[in-house]
Design a binder for these strands. Structure first.
Lengths: 183, 183, 183, 183
DNA sequence: TCATAAACGAGACGGTACGTCTCGTCTTTAC
DNA sequence: GTAAAGACGAGACGTACCGTCTCGTTTATGA
C-alpha cells in the first residue's frame, strides 16, 4: 500500500499561500483581504487553498504560527529577561498583530483560538513555569500582559515604540520575580 | 427661529438600537450579528439605523462608548488604586470585550479607532497624568496594559479571573508610582 | 368662521411642480426621476407634492394632461385630416412620450390609466365619432394607432421622423374614411 | 484543450429563471416582481441570476426574446398577410406586453432597447424588405404600427379584441402593398 | 502500459450580509 | 390650515465574500 497514492501536492504552494496571506493581511487587514485575493496573489486556485486549510481563519492562524516559527523561540534562553524580551519582540511585529486580530475576530470558532493557545502560549507558559519557578497561572498572566498590551496598542493604530517594549519587559520580569519569591 | 425643523427623531430609538446592539454582539459576537438583526430586535427599520450611524462598525463603536459611559468614571476617585481598579473593572466586562473586539478586528476604518481613543483613552490618560503626576506616555501605557491584557485574555475564550484583575491592578499601580518617582 | 382660514395655498406651486416633473422625466426618464428630485427642483417640500397628488404616478399623469392641454385640441378642427394630424403632432413630442411611458410602464394602478383614457382618449374618440360619422370602436382604434405607434417608435430610442408622422396620418385618415363608408 | 474550464453551468437554470420571470412579470407586472421573487420561484440563488444577467432589466429582456423565439417566426411564410398576422399574433399576447413594458420602463439603459430592436425588429424588417419588396423604412413603420398599437391598447388595461387585430392586419398589409407599388 | 488516485485550475452555485435608494407616511415648527 | 423639513417603515437593488461543488486536466504510484 502506498502512503502517497495519487498526484503529490505541489511543493511551493503552502509557502506561497502563507506568505501571500501574511502580506495581504498585514497590509489591508483581515477583513479587507478575501480568500480570492490570497489565492490570486499566490497564483493558486481557491480550491487548493481550501484543500489545505479548512477556512480563512484556519489559514490565517497557520500563517501566524508560521511567522512565529521564524523566531528563535524560548528554548535555550539563558535568562528570564531574554525570554520575556523575545516574546515582546515577537508581539511587536505589525504583521503578527494583523494576523492575530483576524483570528480573534473569527470568534465563533473557538477551536482556532484553543489551538493557537495550545501551540503558542502553552509552550511559553510551560517553559516559564519550569525554567523559572513560577506557577502556570502567573506565567500565563505574563504572556497575556506582554501580548495583550502590545496588540492593543497597535490595534489603536499607534506605532509601538521602543520605550513601551522596554518598560513592558521590565515590568513583566519584575512581576515574575515577585511571583517566584512570593510562592 | 427653528432649532428643530422637520420631524424630530423619535425619542427612544437610539437607546433601543444601542441596547440591542450590545446584547446581540455580546451574545453572538460581532461577525454573527447582522444589522438586520439589530434593527429587528430594536423594532426599527434598517434605514433608520443607517440614518444615525454610518456603518455597522460605527454603530458598535457608539454602543461601546455608550456602555462605558454607564460606568462612574475616573472623576473624583480618591486614590490611584481606585482609578486603576475602575478601569480594570470596566475592561473586565464581557460585553465590552465583544464590542471592542468587533471594532478592532472588523474594520480598517482608522477613523473609528481614533475616535475611540479620543473618547475613551484620552480622558483617562489626561486624568491620570494631571491627577497623579505621571507623564502622558506612562499613563497611556498603563491604560493599554490594563485594557489590552484583559481583552486579550477574554479573547482567548478564557474567563477573566479575579486574581488576574487584582494582580494587574497592583502591577499597574506599582508601575505608575515608579514612573512618578522616576521623573 | 372665515372662508379663508389658515395659510392660503401658495400660488405658483402646482405650476412649478408640474413643470419640474415634465422637465426631469423628459430628460432622465420616469424611473430615474425621484419625487425628491422633483420637489427639490421645484423648490417645494415633498409633503406639499403629496398633498396635491396622491402618488408619483398621479403627478406624472397630471403633468401629462397639463402638457396636452397646451395643445390646441381637437375642438373646431375643420376636417378629418387636421384632427388626426393634431393627434399625431401631440404624440410626437418626446416629453409626452417620457411621461406616458412612465405612467404606462411603472404603475399597476389601473385607476390612473382609466383616468388618462377618460380625459384624453375619450374626448378625442367622441369628437371623431360624432364629427365624422365613425363608430366609437373605430375611433378608438385610430387613436391607439397614432399614439401607440409613435410612442413605441420613440421608446425604441429612435427619433420620430416627419415621414412617419405623415404616413401614419394618411393611413389613419384612410382607415377612418373606410370605416365611415363601410358602416 | 478545454472549451469549458471550471464547473459548467447547471443545465436547467436559465430555463427555469426565464420561465419564472415570464410567469411572475406577466401576472404581477415588472415593478411588482422582485428579483428575489424570481430567484425563489425558480429555485435558484439571487447571485446565480446576477451571474447570468447583469440586471433585472436585462433578465426580462432575455425572457422576452426567449418567448418570442417560441413563435414560428416569419421565415417561410407564404404570403404577406400571413407574415403580418404572425406579428400581430405575437404582439397580442399579454405576457409579451408585460415583459415589453418592463423593458421599456427600464429606460435609461438604451443598450437593452437597442439589443431588442436588433434581435426582434431587425430580422422582421429585413425579411419584409427582401421578401416583399418594400424599403426598410416602410417595413419598420409596419412593425411599429402593429406592435405599438397592440401594446398601447393593452397597456391601457383594455383587452385586445379580435377585431382590432384583424383590422390592424388589413391596414398594415394595405400599407405595405401601397408602399411597394408606390416606390 | 495502463488503471487508479489524488492534486490542481477554473469557475458555478447557495447563502448571507452589506449599504444604498425610493416611495409614501408621519410628525414637528413656522407662517 | 398650508408649507417646509426631515424622520420613519418597508422593501428592492446590486455587490461582496465565504465555503462547497463539479468539471477537465495533470502527475504520481502500482498491477
Amino acid at each position: 500500500m502506498s502512503r502517497t497514492a495519487g498526484r503529490p501536492r505541489r511543493a511551493g504552494i503552502s509557502r506561497a499561500v502563507l506568505d501571500a496571506a501574511v502580506e495581504l493581511v498585514a497590509r489591508d487587514g483581515y477583513r479587507a483581504t478575501s480568500l480570492d485575493d490570497i489565492a490570486r496573489a499566490s497564483g493558486v486556485a481557491k480550491t487548493t487553498v481550501y484543500r489545505r486549510w479548512e477556512s480563512k481563519g484556519a489559514l490565517v492562524a497557520a500563517a501566524l504560527l508560521d511567522r512565529l516559527g521564524d523566531l528563535p523561540g524560548v528554548t535555550g534562553e539563558s535568562d528570564l529577561r531574554a525570554t520575556v524580551a523575545w516574546l515582546a519582540g515577537a508581539a511587536s511585529r505589525p504583521d503578527v498583530h494583523a494576523l492575530l486580530l483576524g483570528v480573534l475576530a473569527e470568534t465563533t470558532d473557538s477551536e482556532l483560538r484553543s489551538e493557537l493557545r495550545a501551540q503558542v502560549r502553552a509552550p511559553f507558559v510551560a517553559a516559564l513555569a519550569q525554567g523559572w519557578g513560577v506557577d502556570a497561572e502567573s506565567a500565563a498572566t505574563a504572556f497575556d500582559l506582554v501580548v495583550g498590551t502590545l496588540l492593543f496598542r497597535s490595534a489603536g493604530s499607534e506605532p509601538v515604540e521602543r520605550r513601551l517594549v522596554t518598560d513592558l519587559t521590565d515590568l513583566v520580569v519584575g512581576y515574575l520575580v515577585d511571583q517566584r519569591r512570593g510562592t
